[in-house]
């Protein structure tokens, strides 16, 4: 008997992501302070480390990157974001120590100021 490939796929969600807190906007509308630590080649883009940014309310990582772009210039954004708007794979961002890849993710809910670290890992490698 021939069995279709997709017929054997189990729907148990084996590869479903680990449980994470619901990605909703923080309830409070209090101003958010973000402390940005830029490392490696990104460090030269900012006048000081850390760079502190303040926002009037809840903020997504994409908002932080946009604000950074305004402060540091388009060349900075070219290094971290693809033309499609996603974070480049070799740009690593950590929010309060946790990896963050989605520009739509909220930041600043757990700690104030939120600590964001960014570094470019070296892209090309053979062997």
């Amino acid at each position: 008997m021939e069995v279709r490939w997709d017929a054997v796929v189990d729907k148990s969600g084996f590869w479903a992501g680990p449980s994470r807190a619901e990605a909703t906007a923080p309830a409070a509308l209090a101003p958010v302070s973000v402390e940005l630590w830029l490392f490696g080649t990104l460090a030269g883009a900012a006048p000081e480390r850390p760079l502190t940014l303040r926002f009037g309310g809840p903020v997504r990582m994409g908002d932080v990157l946009a604000a950074l772009g305004r402060r540091c210039g388009s060349e900075f954004l070219d290094k971290v974001i693809s033309p499609g708007g996603s974070l480049l794979k070799h740009c690593r961002v950590f929010v309060n120590g946790e990896p963050a890849e989605d520009p739509a993710a909220w930041v600043g809910a757990e700690a104030s100021p939120a600590r964001i670290e960014m570094i470019l890992l070296t892209a090309a490698e053979g062997g």
């Binding site: 490392f39 490696g40 080649t41 460090a43 070296t122 490698e125 053979g126």
Partner: peptide, 16 residues
């Protein structure tokens, strides 16, 4: 290399 800020990292003949 990442910390220093250079993208120029290679593995000599490896890869080539």
């Amino acid at each position: 290399a990442a910390a220093f800020g250079t993208p120029n990292l290679s593995t000599a003949g490896g890869g080539l």
